[in-house]
Each structure stands twice: as C-alpha cells, then as structure tokens.
C-alpha cells in the first residue's frame, strides 16, 4: 500500500470512527440527563451539608454526642421556609459552638403543620435516621425545599435526597418510611409539640440538668439565644 493510499484509508476510517464515537458519547449523555430530569440530584448543598456534619455522631434524628448533658430539641416542618432559613443561617453556628465539642446534642422532631406532604417528608427523615443519616436528610431536604404542598415531595424527590444523604439501603428506607409505625411517630411528635403549646415552626425546647425537664424556648431566636439556653440548662 502506497503512502497516499494509506493516508486516504486512515482519513476515511478515522472520520467514521470519530463520528460513531461522538454519537455514542451523545447517547450516553442523553440517557444520563433524561434519568436525572425526574428527580435528582442536582441537589443543592450536598458538599456543604457534609462539611457541616462531618465527624459529628448521629443516631436516629439526634445529632451530637449521645452522652451530652444538654439536648436542644427542634420541632420543625420540613416544608417550612422559616425552618429552612434557620437550618441555613442559625443552626450551623450552634452546631459548631455547642454540638461539635460535645456540650450539647440537637434532636429534630416533626411538627407537621403545613400539610400531608410534610408527613411524608418527616417519615422519610425518620427512616433515614434509622440508617444513621437523619440529619443529613433533614439538612439536605431544607436546602432543596420547594413551594409548600406543590407536589414536589414526590417519591423521586425523597429518594434523591435520601441517596444524596448517604442512606445505604433505599429498599429498607422505603419500607420504614411507609410503615404505619413511622407515620404514627410523626403524628405523636406533632401532638407533643401542640401539647407543649407551640403554634409554629421552628419551635425549640431544651432539656438539661438545670432546665427541670423539657423547657420550651418558643418559635424564634438567634444562634446566641439558643447558645445561652444551652449554657443555662447545663
């Protein structure tokens, strides 16, 4: 084969191969994009949440050292925009100053005041907690919250949040979140919030040696207020 013939053969074969490869890559990307349109993943704040919670023990929906003397309880509704604001702007400071060092722990309890979608979201958080990813789930849900009762709390959305939160067995998580036991627990936590006299979310209470049981703090406050309440309860 002469050099010219070889060059012509090379150009033909290479052109065809490059075309086929480009089509193959485009097909792979289209498949990937189409599967994420239904509810992934371009979830916001995954890295930030991971950094906020990194190295802090979690059990159920309790974040922090299980042996901590003080427990700060947040009664929240995952659909509540004010709770989201609190999760993004206030709680990170409290977590860094009081929880990371082991002085206190924070517990999330459901107070579903917005609608049925809040119940589904709360149950999903409890189920994620059973796999040690409860706070990752709560924080990621807040950061990707949609408009209240708009239908965004779909199975696809909840699954995407659970996966991004690091829930290892989606099958078990699905079973737990849909169980009557979990739904009943969401209702019981909401009933407790009403019994404590709360009328909105997020509401806080603190429990510690000096607090005399569960002491209610109300619906709002700054990071400084919560830190003072924790210090007073020790």
């Amino acid at each position: 084969m002469s050099a010219d013939e070889r060059r012509q053969r090379l150009v033909k074969l290479a052109s065809a191969t490059v075309f086929l490869a480009a089509v193959a890559v485009a097909v792979l990307i289209v498949i990937d994009q189409s599967q994420t349109d239904g509810g992934d993943t371009s979830l916001e704040g995954v890295a930030a949440v991971r950094a906020d919670l990194d190295g802090i023990p979690q059990r159920g929906l309790v974040l922090g050292d299980p042996g901590a003397k003080v427990t700060l309880v947040e009664f929240g509704d995952l659909q509540c925009p004010a709770c989201r604001g609190f999760a993004e702007d206030v709680l990170p400071q409290v977590i860094e100053s009081r929880v990371r060092g082991g002085e206190a722990r924070i517990e999330f309890r459901n107070f579903t005041i917005i609608g049925e979608e809040s119940v589904a979201a709360g149950a999903a958080a409890i189920a994620a907690g059973e796999q040690g990813r409860g706070w990752d789930f709560v924080e990621l849900f807040y950061r990707n919250q949609g408009f209240e009762n708009s239908g965004y709390v779909s199975d696809d959305f909840l699954t995407a949040v659970a996966r991004a939160a690091g829930v290892s067995s989606i099958e078990r998580w699905n079973r737990v979140r849909k169980s009557q036991r979990t739904i009943d627990r969401v209702a019981a936590e909401s009933a407790e919030a009403r019994r404590l006299g709360f009328g909105g979310t997020p509401s806080f209470a603190v429990e510690g040696p000096a607090a005399g049981g569960l002491k209610t703090l109300g619906t709002s406050g700054s990071a400084g207020d919560l830190e003072s309440a924790i210090d007073d309860a020790r």
């Binding site: 792979l28 599967q35 994420t36 890295a47 995407a160 690091g166």
Partner: peptide
C-alpha cells in the same frame, strides 16, 4: 460517598 450516592452513578 457523595458521588456514589448521586443518580449519575447509574446509567
């Protein structure tokens, strides 16, 4: 963990 949890880890 984050990458493995993403839906992009499956096609």
């Amino acid at each position: 963990e984050t990458v493995a949890a993403s839906s992009h880890s499956e096609l």
